[in-house]
Simulated assay, not measured.
Amino acid sequence: IWDAGAEVLRLAHDGPVNWVVFDPGGAGLATASADGTVRVWDAATGAELIRLTHGDVVWSVVFSPGGDLLASASGDGTARVWDTRSGTEKARLAHDVLVRAVVFGPGGDRLASVDDAGCVRVWDVVSAAEVARLTHDGEVNWAAFSPGGDRLATACRDGSVRIWDAASGAELAELPHDDAVWSLAFSPDGSRLASASGDGSARVWALSTEELIAQALGRLTENLTEEEWQHHMGPDVPYRRLRDDLP
């Protein structure tokens, strides 16, 4: 932990540390290590508060929005949910392969897990039931819930970002890149998505219907007829002309 460039704390594991994250209040810090442990530390003193043990490398760790739960992803083929006060294991979510990452939904009642078989699963945190399974053609590097929790975006090594309905698992859109996509993030209002790719680009995508329509219309050199509008936009979007000075 650093303060204006000065090291104020050093937290030691018995192996490489793969992930680090502050709790929502900033008072605690969790680390995920190749030594098979997740450790929760006091961010002010560096005292180890809790040690949580997996059977293999722990790749990532994340706090729930309320800070009362902690989820971890491990090479032992499980994602686990823990109580941050007691260290009690609340749920063990079994996979067939290494689990690379976990991410909570904004309400803390949903958890997405990313495994090495190209599968992202959405779980009910309370019941530990799998509610959706998102299958990809290749490996997935990361996933993110939208701020409203209704959509889930996945960053794929096949050079795509995919957007899914988080409840049904239906694929809503695919955004192409020229190389593997390593991470992504929704804007705070959910209207845009940023993605980082091995093609040397970070891209920002418009997701709101109005912005997408505005961008599409801005590329036209003539107004759509009402028949063309119905064909491309559908019956639920009211017809309008792009500009009165265009044919």
Rank of each mutant, 00 (worst) to 15 (best):
L70D: 00
L70A: 00
L70C: 00
A71Q: 02
A71W: 03
A71V: 03
S72M: 04
S72I: 03
S72C: 04
S74N: 08
G75K: 03
D76Y: 04
D76N: 10
G77Y: 09
G77P: 11
T78D: 10
A79W: 03
A79G: 07
A79F: 04
R80H: 05
V81P: 03
V81Y: 02
W82P: 01
W82N: 01
W82A: 01
D83C: 05
T84H: 03
T84L: 05
R85V: 13
S86A: 15
G87P: 13
G87D: 09
T88S: 13
T88A: 15
T88P: 01
E89R: 14
E89G: 03
E89T: 06
A91Q: 15
A94P: 02
A94C: 03
A94N: 12
H95V: 07
D96G: 15
D96W: 04
D96F: 04
V97I: 13
V97G: 07
V97F: 12
V97A: 14
L98E: 13
V99S: 06
V99T: 07
V99I: 11
R100F: 11
A101N: 15
V102N: 00
V103Y: 07
V103D: 11
V103F: 05
V103Q: 14
F104R: 09
F104C: 12
F104S: 11
F104G: 11
G107T: 12
G107I: 01
G108F: 08
G108K: 07
G108L: 09
G108S: 10
D109R: 09
D109H: 12
D109S: 14
D109C: 05
D109Q: 13
R110E: 07
R110G: 05
R110P: 09
R110H: 12
L111W: 00
L111N: 00
L111H: 00
V114E: 00
V114M: 00
D115Q: 12
D115R: 11
D115M: 06
C119R: 14
C119H: 06
C119T: 15
V120I: 13
V120M: 02
V120K: 02
V120C: 05
R121W: 00
R121A: 13
W123M: 02
V125D: 05
V125H: 05
A128D: 14
A128K: 09
A129P: 12
A129R: 15
A129C: 11
A129L: 13
E130V: 06
E130K: 15
V131C: 10
V131A: 13
V131Q: 14
V131L: 13
R133F: 12
H136T: 11
H136K: 12
G138D: 15
V140C: 01
V140D: 00
V140G: 01
N141V: 07
N141E: 14
N141R: 14
W142K: 07
A143K: 09
A143C: 14
A144F: 02
A144W: 01
A144N: 03
F145Q: 05
F145H: 04
F145V: 06
S146I: 06
S146G: 11
G148H: 04
G149W: 05
R151F: 12
R151Q: 15
R151S: 11
R151L: 15
R151D: 07
L152F: 10
L152G: 08
L152W: 10
L152K: 08
L152Q: 11
A153F: 08
A153H: 09
T154K: 09
T154R: 07
T154Q: 09
T154V: 06
A155H: 07
A155L: 10
R157H: 08
